[in-house]
């Protein structure tokens, strides 16, 4: 479980940067081009998955421990709720209360880019959590042989 060969590791290290950059692009430009929070988050999870495949199971958990992942997940959910509730300051639930700006600009459309960022964080981190749960928590031995006890 030490990961793959040197070639795979080197290429994975370089490519993961671009994958995460691409996911940030997909999230941030979600109101101008196709994309948005959901696909951006899944691409983020896939980038971390590539690291996990190439370097073994331990490296992603060292970079993003369980506690911090759970904090980020709750941060995404609460941020989306906060945007929804802040609509009350100007009127009603989910009101797009920020200034709208000009179309085709990056900073436009009020709360939409913010919502996209929070949804992207939430989807990405929760899918990362389930992938780690699928690969790390258990080794899935058949019932005959007992797994070695780990703390």
């Amino acid at each position: 479980m030490k990961g793959m060969s040197l070639i795979v590791r080197t290429i994975a290290r370089v490519v993961t940067t671009f994958i995460i950059l691409y996911s940030a692009y997909i999230v941030v430009y979600g109101h101008i081009t196709p994309g948005g929070g959901f696909p951006g988050g899944v691409i983020l999870a896939l980038g971390i998955m590539l690291l996990m495949l190439a370097f073994g199971k331990d490296l992603p958990l060292r970079k993003l421990p369980e506690g911090r992942a759970s904090v980020l997940d709750c941060l995404g959910a609460l941020g989306f709720w906060a945007i929804a509730l802040l609509g009350f300051t100007a009127g009603y639930f989910f009101l797009n209360f920020l200034g709208k700006g000009e179309p085709f600009r990056l900073v436009s459309a009020g709360t939409m880019p913010l919502s996209n960022i929070f949804i992207g964080i939430k989807v990405g981190v929760s899918l990362f959590a389930v992938l780690t749960a699928l690969s790390v928590y258990r080794r899935f031995y058949p019932p005959g042989e007992e797994p070695p006890e780990e703390d």
Partner: peptide
């Protein structure tokens, strides 16, 4: 579903 399937496999083989 896959999590449930893995748990069932672990229990019943």
């Amino acid at each position: 579903l896959v999590a449930l399937v893995l748990r069932l496999y672990e229990k019943y083989g």
